[in-house]
């Protein structure tokens, strides 16, 4: 088995709202897959369909070679889920919830549980509502990470964690990858996705707009170049793929479509280059390119966010 999750043409409507509109998603076994999209794009709905909580209207969904709607009990033994909004039973302590969820999944590694409690600095004796949002998330994370499962479905698991805990989380996910577990990580924290994910899918309005490795996606966007040239930058502005050119004597600053980079660099080299810095596109730019085009006309926002 090389594919842990395979979704194609998934449609889910709630009344008149079309939450998922032909979504595609492929997660390979053993990878950490970033699942990105603006609020309301359909990330949580997709995860709920994968968990068999929602029934898909149409489309094919395969999870660990099974059907998430029909093979619930068999599949759920092999996965763990951390919801975006973690609720706990008011009368149960955090430790009790961790044990209960672990046992219901089919086993908890006691040593790993103790280790995780320590690393996340979580007090397991407090009860339900006395935990803060971040600590409730830690309860769900410890329960999921200490479970003996193949697949982790994490829905914005770190939205309430502080930066120190965020670092602990990243360590833990890297350990999971080393153990060969598959992770679907829905997140808004781009640094986290950049640090952790092998591949990324970006969705919007219930549809997948980009999918691939980060380097593949970077080809789809622009690199910022600042260079000091030996002579006047003749004809640079006319080259295909060059945008927002600013020239000051011999110094030029511009953006170039990543797939035209080679031709542009050759043109620069012909003029002669004294110094050159290039900045690869950040995930943030990728993200904004797909999210924000209703906010600003295409092209302008890229310049606005370049660092």
């Amino acid at each position: 088995m090389t594919t842990a999750i395979s979704v194609s043409g998934l449609v889910k409507t709630f009344g008149r709202t079309r939450a998922l509109d032909g979504l595609d998603l492929t997660v390979r076994t053993g990878e950490v897959h970033g699942f990105l999209g603006p609020n309301g794009a359909g990330k949580s709905t997709t995860i709920r369909v994968l968990l068999g909580l929602l029934r898909a209207d149409s489309g094919d969904v395969t999870l660990l070679d099974g059907n998430p709607w029909h093979d619930v009990a068999a599949l759920h033994r092999r996965l763990a889920y951390v919801p975006g909004d973690v609720a706990l039973w008011p009368t149960l302590s955090g430790g009790e919830v961790i044990d209960l969820l672990g046992r219901l999944r089919g086993g908890l590694d006691a040593k790993r549980r103790a280790d995780l409690l320590e690393r996340f600095e979580l007090d397991p004796t407090k009860k339900g509502r006395t935990y803060s949002k971040g600590n409730r998330q830690k309860v769900a994370l410890v329960a999921a990470l200490a479970s003996d499962v193949e697949l982790l479905l994490l829905d914005e698991p770190t939205s309430g964690l502080d930066p120190v805990m965020e670092a602990v989380f990243q360590e833990c996910i890297n350990e999971e990858r080393e153990r060969g577990r598959t992770v679907l990580l829905s997140s808004h924290i781009l640094a986290e996705v950049e640090a952790l994910c092998d591949r990324v899918s970006i969705i919007r309005d219930g549809r997948t707009v980009e999918s691939g490795t980060l380097s593949e996606l970077r080809h789809l966007t622009r690199t910022s170049i600042t260079a000091e040239l030996a002579g006047a930058p003749n004809g640079l502005a006319d080259l295909p793929g060059v945008h927002d050119l600013k020239a000051e004597g011999d110094r030029v600053k511009f953006e170039v479509d990543s797939d035209k980079l080679d031709a542009v660099l050759q043109a620069l080299a012909r003029t002669g280059v004294r110094s050159l810095t290039s900045q690869p596109p950040t995930l943030e730019e990728l993200f904004l390119r797909h999210y924000a085009d209703e906010l600003a006309p295409n092209g302008k926002h890229t310049a606005a966010v370049s660092r």
């Binding site: 709920r48 968990l51 068999g52 909580l53 619930v72 009990a73 068999a74 759920h76 033994r77 996965l79 763990a80 889920y81 919801p83 909004d85 973690v86 609720a87 706990l88 039973w89 969820l101 219901l104 999944r105 089919g106 769900a140 479905l153």
Partner: peptide
Amino acid sequence: SALLLEPLLATKVTR
């Protein structure tokens, strides 16, 4: 409604 069912159904517990 309190979102306490979802995490349970994500385990091997059936509806």
